[in-house]
Design a protein around this nucleic acid. Structure first.
Ligand SMILES: Nc1ncnc2c1ncn2[C@@H]1O[C@H](COP(=O)(O)OP(=O)(O)OP(=O)(O)O)[C@@H](O)[C@H]1O
Length: 673
DNA sequence: AACACAATCCTTTTT
DNA sequence: GGATTGTGTT
């Protein structure tokens, strides 16, 4: 029982309340996740088998952290079940999907695949034949997805996001229906379908009974990040035995763009009668100096999240620092220098993080870190599984697993010289009408008589013959495919040397699988943790973290730098002029600030690195002003300011001339604002 | 029907 | 800056 000593009384109460619905609502760093950890340990110690405990949350990163921490106290706890809602849905639907009409074998469409599918549907419906411009696939996917995630009509989403296409609501709705049919016909599920069909499954009484037997306790972390579907899923998971605990912080709700809101938290006690509500009052993460800033930020928001946070240790700490630079390269130089300095004083890279609103805000810093040989790990931005070269290779593997995979075939064929959309579609249609490889070979053989692309098809044919000839391990298959792909790869990408390493990385990942099918599923649902940049690879030292604020949720570091605090960056340019979105940006800032344990740096630079290209958007991006979240009087009065501005104002395109001296900190207080 | 090049549009955060 | 759409050529 010793682990219970690591909890305060409110936390203990939550841990000991092992029966009945429970809502833990508390500010950042108050030990909510710790409650989950210890509740798992406590349950396991009291005889609950770990497989009967289900832990869920929305983001992969938070899920990983939660599972890691939950396994930390009692050995057996490493067998608890859980992950993201999506990964749980995938596992359930694999086994029981047919009960709700999901094809027996299905594969997952990532965003790019989904867009491709939607494009095909829209083309089939003739929406691109008309003279009038029809929204492009990316926009269409967004509308369809948002309508589901926010539970809105297509019309309502259009009104908000694409008012210029409002008159096309009927067509978009027809497209949505067609897309839904298409997916069922072809055995595809997109991310939203995972939640949709899981919910459908859980609505069946027999599933509820079965789930109640399989899982005695369900816990959801970061509950404010759940949207309507996920809230319903939680409800049905707990409906039979009512042992559901959700934890969250309404002030940290930052996924409004996909339909998450604090409503689920507020509604929880209504959905589950006799819910025990526990609030945690003390903050164990940050120094009081940091919390003072965080409290001020909370106070500035339109909604009143009146949770005054105070440090449990009563530790005052170091005053947060605000830094202002002439341009983003100077910002990057200074921050990289500071990080190095801290490391040399004994604060390892691993305990420091740089956070930003969107990945592009970190580009200068990435370059600078690489230049200084500082190892870092990047979270957010383009996912490995979304890069064109990875998708090319993966498509070949998908074919091997599912010969009817139309989208994969199309992609593979389009890579060949002389084959464009038209020919690719024709050949694909022929192929998916047959059932086994020998027939496919025959079809390819037949098409290979066309001189224009015959050679390419013959190469493909011989590759396929080789990898299907006998049972060979996934890694061997991938190696063959890579060899086949190499010449295509070199022609297709001018920057292929930069991408080459990814191909080897992919092989390393595949090496761990005996089963291609499993690999392909994991690759999209639970992608391997490899944010490790090439720069970091030959270091033994654990890397620095670079992360979007979204992906930093639930995590903490001793030293945190939040960069790019300008109007148009944070708050994002997209949010300007929309009150509800500004509010969400504000919460995002709050999340960033509350990641810091010991010291917090907040930085802004007058010109972003792409500032001069962005003339088209400069207006809405807010002309280089410091973020309103920072200039609020009650915030700025709680931080120390340092200015680093050169006499000439700083030219971003200047010659590369690194000079760590020369620009001294100029302490100012009020003048600038 | 495919391709190369030019003009034009759009750019976030996650699964 | 990249992605997509349009135009002219093969
Ligand atoms: N009772 C406690 N005594 C000492 N340290 C604690 C206690 N509770 C939590 N902590 C520590 O405080 C930090 C924050 O805890 P935790 O991550 O559980 O907070 P959280 O409420 O989940 O935060 P967030 O809202 O940011 O996800 C962690 O380092 C945790 O180990």
């Amino acid at each position: 029982m010793s682990h219970l000593d690591q909890l305060n009384s409110a936390q203990k109460e939550a841990v000991m309340a092992t029966e009945g619905p429970l809502l833990v609502i508390a500010g950042a760093g108050s030990g909510k996740t710790r409650v989950i950890e210890h509740r798992v340990a406590h349950l396991v110690e009291n005889g609950v088998s770990p497989e009967k405990i289900l832990l869920l949350t929305f983001t992969r990163r938070a899920a990983g952290e939660m599972l890691r921490r939950a396994a930390g106290h009692v050995k057996a706890a490493e067998h608890v079940e859980g992950g993201t809602f999506h990964s749980f849905a995938y596992k359930m639907l694999r086994k029981y999907g047919t009960r709700v009409g999901v094809p027996k074998k299905f594969s997952i469409l990532d965003e790019g695949d989904a867009e491709e599918a939607i494009h095909r549907c829209a083309t089939q419906l003739g929406f691109y034949d008309k003279k009038e411009r029809f929204p492009k696939k990316g926009a269409l996917r967004k509308v369809v997805s948002q309508a589901f995630n926010k539970q809105l009509t297509v019309e309502a989403v259009l009104l908000r996001e694409y008012p210029n296409f409002l008159h096309l609501a009927d067509e978009v709705e027809r497209l949505r229906d067609r897309y839904a049919e298409y997916k069922m016909e072809k055995g595809y599920l997109d991310y939203d379908d995972l939640l949709f069909f899981l919910l459908m499954l859980l609505q069946q009484k027999e599933t509820q009974v079965f789930i109640a037997e399989k899982y005695s306790h369900v816990m959801v972390d970061e509950y404010q990040d759940t949207n309507r579907a996920q809230g319903e899923i939680t409800y049905f998971l707990g409906r039979e035995n009512r042992n559901v605990m959700v934890v969250g912080d309404d002030a940290q709700s930052i996924y409004g763009f996909r339909g998450a809101s604090h409503e689920n938290i507020m509604e929880f006690p209504k959905r589950f009668s006799k819910t025990k509500v526990i609030k945690l009052e003390e903050n164990y993460r940050s120094t009081q100096d940091i919390l003072d800033v965080a409290n001020a930020v909370l106070d500035n928001m339109a909604s009143k999240y009146s949770k005054e946070m105070r440090s449990a240790h009563g530790e005052k700490g170091v005053c947060p620092t605000m830094l202002f630079f002439g341009n983003s390269r100077r910002e990057a130089e200074w921050i990289a220098g500071k990080i190095k300095e801290l490391r040399d004083e004994g604060e390892s890279f691993h305990h420091q993080a740089v956070l930003f609103r969107s990945t592009y805000a970190s580009i200068s810093l990435q370059a600078e870190l690489a230049r200084r040989n500082i190892p870092f790990q990047l979270f957010g931005g383009v996912k490995f599984y979304e890069t064109a070269h990875a998708k090319d290779l993966i498509s070949h593997l998908k074919i091997l697993v599912n010969l009817q995979d139309e989208l994969a075939w199309n992609r593979v064929l389009m890579l060949l010289e002389g084959i464009g959309p038209r020919t690719a579609s024709q050949i694909t249609d022929d192929i998916i009408s047959v059932q086994d490889f020998s027939d496919v070979f025959e079809i390819l053989d037949r098409h290979a008589s066309v001189g224009r692309y015959g050679d390419g098809l013959k190469r493909l044919l011989s590759l396929l013959r080789e990898v299907t000839h006998e049972k060979i391990p996934p890694l061997e298959q991938l190696k063959q495919v890579s060899k086949y792909y190499e010449p295509i790869f070199r022609t297709k990408f001018d920057d292929w040397p930069k991408r080459l390493n990814d191909i080897l990385v992919l092989q390393e990942i595949v090496e761990q699988y005996k089963n291609l099918d499993q690999f392909l599923a994991d690759f999209v649902i639970d992608p391997p943790r490899l944010g490790v940049m090439a720069e970091a690879e030959d270091h033994d030292e654990k890397p620095l973290t670079l992360s979007t604020i979204h992906s930093a949720k639930g995590l903490e570091w001793d030293y945190v730098f939040v960069i790019g605090l300008m109007e148009g960056v944070l708050p994002s340019g997209f949010a300007l002029g929309r009150d509800d979105e500004i509010e969400e940006e504000h919460r995002l800032f709050y999340v960033g600030v509350t990641r810091a344990k010991k010291q917090l740096f907040l930085s802004a630079s007058y010109l972003s690195s792409r500032g001069r290209f962005d003339s088209a958007h400069r207006e809405e991006m807010g002309s280089g002003e410091i973020s309103r979240f920072l200039t609020a009087p009650n915030v700025i009065s709680k931080v120390e300011h340092q200015m680093f501005v050169e006499e000439d104002g700083g030219d971003d395109e200047g010659e590369v001339d690194y000079d760590d001296e020369g620009i001294g900190p100029v302490r100012r207080k009020e003048e600038l604002w």
